[in-house]
Simulated scan of single mutants.
Amino acid sequence: MTSTPPGYQQNPAPKSSGKKWVLFGCGGCLGLIALGIAGVVGFVFVVLGAIKQTDAYKIALSKAQNSPALQAAIGTPIKENFFSPMGSASTNNGAGEANIILTLEGTSGRAAVVTATASKPAGGEWQFSVLNAKVAPSGPDIDLLTEGQPADPAAAPATAPATQN
């Protein structure tokens, strides 16, 4: 008795729709990650923009850019770094507080970090308690509050009157 083996049947080719779902799932996850990163970057730019609108920031930047000592140390023109300023500035009922750090660059390839601390009474002007520039990496500290102001005559040593012969 001869028997013929049953025919070999091949399974049909797998459908490619499974790959589409995998790509859709990965794309969705990557999209959520990209959306999260975009949200963080947007938040940072909103915060930077809010600080740049304050008068404390504008005064600190102007004093730093117009400082002869800082210009000599890092070159002119003095421009802000991309992620500058950092810190906080707030006003409430006309009174305000600001703690700002500016990163500035000059044409000499050197940079400076300006630290500003200021307060504002209601209806008053910004008063800086700290406005200091540190030239990186090992340059001088420049006090932008006292630069260009005449020396205090009370702090100078008194000279003895000339004697007459």
Results as ranks from 00 to 15, higher is better:
residue 3 S to M: 03
residue 3 S to P: 00
residue 6 P to K: 07
residue 7 G to M: 06
residue 8 Y to G: 01
residue 8 Y to F: 11
residue 8 Y to L: 10
residue 9 Q to W: 08
residue 10 Q to W: 08
residue 12 P to F: 03
residue 13 A to G: 00
residue 13 A to C: 00
residue 14 P to Q: 03
residue 16 S to Y: 00
residue 22 V to P: 06
residue 22 V to G: 02
residue 22 V to H: 04
residue 23 L to F: 13
residue 23 L to W: 11
residue 24 F to R: 14
residue 24 F to K: 14
residue 25 G to T: 11
residue 26 C to G: 08
residue 26 C to F: 14
residue 26 C to R: 04
residue 27 G to F: 06
residue 27 G to M: 04
residue 27 G to A: 03
residue 28 G to F: 04
residue 29 C to N: 03
residue 29 C to W: 12
residue 32 L to I: 13
residue 33 I to R: 03
residue 35 L to H: 12
residue 36 G to N: 14
residue 38 A to T: 08
residue 38 A to R: 09
residue 38 A to Q: 05
residue 40 V to R: 11
residue 43 F to V: 10
residue 44 V to Y: 10
residue 46 V to P: 01
residue 51 I to F: 01
residue 51 I to P: 04
residue 52 K to D: 05
residue 52 K to I: 01
residue 53 Q to M: 05
residue 54 T to N: 11
residue 55 D to K: 15
residue 57 Y to K: 10
residue 59 I to V: 12
residue 60 A to Y: 09
residue 61 L to V: 13
residue 61 L to I: 09
residue 64 A to L: 04
residue 65 Q to N: 10
residue 67 S to C: 13
residue 69 A to P: 15
residue 69 A to C: 07
residue 70 L to Y: 09
residue 73 A to W: 11
residue 74 I to D: 11
residue 75 G to D: 12
residue 75 G to V: 09
residue 75 G to E: 06
residue 77 P to I: 09
residue 77 P to S: 07
residue 79 K to D: 15
residue 80 E to V: 08
residue 82 F to Q: 12
residue 83 F to H: 10
residue 83 F to N: 14
residue 84 S to W: 05
residue 84 S to H: 08
residue 85 P to S: 06
residue 86 M to W: 04
residue 87 G to Y: 11
residue 89 A to S: 15
residue 91 T to W: 02
residue 91 T to E: 15
residue 91 T to A: 11
residue 93 N to V: 13
residue 94 G to E: 08
residue 95 A to E: 12
residue 95 A to F: 09
residue 96 G to D: 13
residue 96 G to C: 12
residue 96 G to N: 13
residue 97 E to W: 08
residue 97 E to I: 15
residue 98 A to M: 09
residue 98 A to T: 14
residue 99 N to W: 12
residue 99 N to E: 15
residue 99 N to Y: 11
residue 102 L to V: 09
residue 102 L to A: 05
residue 103 T to W: 00
residue 105 E to A: 06
residue 106 G to D: 07
residue 107 T to K: 00
residue 107 T to P: 01
residue 109 G to W: 04
residue 110 R to K: 13
residue 110 R to H: 04
residue 114 V to T: 02
residue 114 V to S: 02
residue 116 A to F: 01
residue 116 A to N: 04
residue 117 T to M: 10
residue 119 S to N: 06
residue 119 S to C: 00
residue 119 S to G: 06
residue 121 P to A: 10
residue 121 P to I: 08
residue 122 A to K: 13
residue 122 A to Q: 07
residue 122 A to R: 07
residue 123 G to V: 06
residue 124 G to P: 01
residue 125 E to A: 09
residue 126 W to R: 10
residue 126 W to L: 01
residue 126 W to S: 02
residue 127 Q to P: 00
residue 129 S to R: 01
residue 130 V to C: 01
residue 133 A to T: 03
residue 133 A to V: 01
residue 134 K to F: 00
residue 134 K to T: 02
residue 134 K to M: 02
residue 135 V to H: 02
residue 140 P to N: 08
residue 142 I to S: 02
residue 142 I to Q: 05
residue 144 L to Q: 02
residue 145 L to D: 06
residue 148 G to C: 05
residue 153 P to K: 12
residue 154 A to Q: 12
residue 155 A to C: 07
residue 156 A to H: 03
residue 157 P to R: 08
residue 157 P to L: 06
residue 157 P to W: 09
residue 160 A to L: 11
residue 160 A to K: 10
residue 161 P to D: 13
residue 163 T to N: 13
residue 163 T to Q: 14
residue 164 Q to Y: 13
